Amino acid sequence: MQVIYLDEPFNEKNVNSAPIVLALGFFDGVHLGHQQVIKKAKAEAKKRGLKLAVMTLDRHPSIVFQNVPQSSVRYLTPLKRKLELFVKLGADITYIVALNEKISSMGPQEFVDKYMAGLNAAAVVAGEDYTYGKKNVANMQTLTEYSKKRFEIITVPHLKKGGSKVGSTVIRKYIDAGEVENANKLLGYTYQNTGVVVHGKQRGRKLGFPTINLNISNSERIPSEAIYAVKVTIVGKTVLGMASIGRNETFGEGQKQTVEINLFDFSQMVYGEETVVQWYCKLREQQKFSDVQGLIRQLERDKENTINYFKEK
């Protein structure tokens, strides 16, 4: 897949010169609703014998339009992960637009002229709530006027499950509550984070449950503090494990939050390795134990429950 970054004013030589079908959206999570939009665009591209291009933004719209601090935004899919999912969905090109004041101050007609017609779109595909400016004047209904019949407009209705819209907002709520199984049903894949293995306090080793400690970027949304059944991909291997997101309160109050994973049947030294953890199921909430032996007994139950969970998958 070709990845093209666009900033104002963008160099037209960077743009694919042939007609394309263009899928539009921010696509945080690339969930089942987003996938429906991109798959519809892919089918249209195949029908027309054209390439599929996906256009997204380099940062969350709330940073520019709602003045949300960039440091406080937690993505379901950081850009690297988003691009991986676009590839799986058959995108030939991804345009990444720099969302800055030049774009946010742009009127809807100029945006359509440059970032739809100007990208040689033969057809534009987006969800029914897609906007490209103030939603009361720059929406899918008004796009007919701005397009001036230069391209076809295909609006994809909301995907609903259980009578409710599949959307990034509800998925974020599930992740924040640790309800990863519900989140995964709406994502259409298993939610994951990427981190680097760092040194911890090696308490798990002393308990008979050695762990890897992950440093995950603050820009990634991680599940709530709890114990989870996970799969971890590390040094080319995928292994089962149980993960703890918490503060180790059994060993004292006021400790920093950590992400620690006990990997089953794995004993390599992997400090500094990039690691992908997939969150399958919340086993239980965090709890403070009165003594270390109580913690060990619970960890043994957690391991048994994790193994049984994956046996039934």
Rank of each mutant, 00 (worst) to 15 (best):
V170E: 14
I171F: 05
I171H: 12
I171E: 14
I171N: 06
R172F: 01
R172A: 12
K173D: 15
Y174E: 03
Y174I: 05
G178A: 13
E179T: 07
E179Q: 15
V180A: 07
V180I: 05
E181Y: 06
E181G: 09
N182W: 15
N182A: 15
N184E: 06
L186N: 02
L186H: 11
L187E: 09
L187P: 11
Y189A: 12
T190H: 07
T190V: 15
Y191H: 03
N193E: 06
N193V: 08
G195K: 04
G195N: 02
V196P: 03
V197D: 00
V197T: 09
V197K: 02
V198S: 04
H199M: 08
H199A: 08
H199R: 13
G200A: 04
Q202T: 04
Q202L: 01
G204R: 07
G204H: 00
R205Q: 04
K206D: 13
L207K: 09
G208W: 00
F209N: 07
F209L: 04
P210A: 03
T211R: 06
T211Q: 11
T211C: 08
T211H: 05
L214M: 01
L214R: 07
I216T: 02
S217G: 09
S217T: 06
S219Y: 13
S219M: 07
I222L: 03
P223M: 03
A226H: 08
I227H: 12
Y228R: 00
Y228H: 07
Y228I: 04
A229N: 04
A229C: 00
A229M: 00
V230C: 06
K231M: 04
K231N: 09
V232T: 08
T233P: 00
I234T: 01
I234E: 02
V235D: 15
G236W: 08
G236S: 05
G236K: 06
G236D: 02
K237Y: 14
K237E: 15
K237H: 13
K237I: 05
T238S: 10
T238H: 11
T238G: 08
V239H: 05
L240V: 11
L240I: 10
G241C: 08
G241Y: 08
S244N: 14
I245L: 03
I245Q: 01
I245G: 03
I245A: 00
I245T: 00
I245N: 04
G246N: 02
R247F: 12
N248I: 02
N248T: 10
E249H: 11
T250Q: 09
T250W: 05
T250K: 01
F251V: 00
F251W: 04
G252H: 06
G252T: 08
G252D: 03
E253M: 13
E253G: 02
E253Q: 13
K256V: 08
Q257N: 05
T258N: 06
T258S: 14
T258G: 09
V259Y: 15
I261M: 06
